[in-house]
């Protein structure tokens, strides 16, 4: 039996949202989320294996995030690059410090942190997305968390 597409949206929609939201501002994140699921819906009847649907969706989301950032910034970028400066809605958010810290991360670290900790992808898959090796992806995620911890501590003493 084939799974109705709606089940994929319900199951993986929140993960894709978190990834889009970590890498883009709120409006761009909404557009990237929609674009991701419209593309997935178009390709779904031809999807061979349903073994790693989350990885498949996050991969599509990665490309949509890159496209969206390119559209918003208008400046042409080499493909595979994540946006440099997402525009957070600082005024209405509680997690401002953490977001500011996330913004400040180098793009590979930010991507690695989002794909590892928000999307739960393997380092091998993250390496493919970020066009680096599995070991480099692992390092980027660890460095990213270490950097976040440092800036986060500075911004929010407790």
């Amino acid at each position: 039996m084939v799974r109705p597409f709606e089940e994929l949206v319900v199951e993986h929609g929140p993960v894709v949202w978190r990834v889009c939201r970590a890498l883009l501002g709120p409006d761009d994140a909404e557009d990237a989320w929609s674009e991701t699921f419209v593309s997935a819906l178009r390709a779904y009847p031809d999807l061979r294996s349903e073994s790693n649907v989350r990885g498949w969706l996050v991969t599509i989301a990665h490309h949509k995030v890159v496209d969206q950032a390119r559209r918003t910034n208008r400046a042409p970028r080499p493909s595979g690059d994540l946006p440099d400066i997402p525009t957070w809605d600082h005024q209405h958010d509680d997690g401002v410090e953490l977001r500011t810290a996330l913004e400040a991360l180098p793009t590979k670290q930010r991507g690695a942190v989002a794909y590892r900790y928000l999307a739960d992808l393997s380092y091998f898959d993250i390496g493919v997305l970020l066009q680096s090796s599995e070991a480099a992806a692992r390092r980027s995620a660890a460095d990213g968390i270490a950097n976040l911890r440092k800036t986060y501590l500075k911004g929010a003493p407790r």
Binding site: P14, W17, R18, V19, R21, A22, D93, D94, G95, L98, R99, L102, V113, A114, Y117, L118, I145, A146, L148, R149, Y152, L153, K154, P157, R158
Partner: peptide
């Protein structure tokens, strides 16, 4: 500041922050 924030907390806060 001493390191009272762990990696785990940063990750948990990150997940919370990046939810709608």
């Amino acid at each position: 500041i001493t390191g009272t924030v762990t990696d785990g907390q940063v990750i948990a806060d990150l997940t919370a922050t990046c939810t709608a």
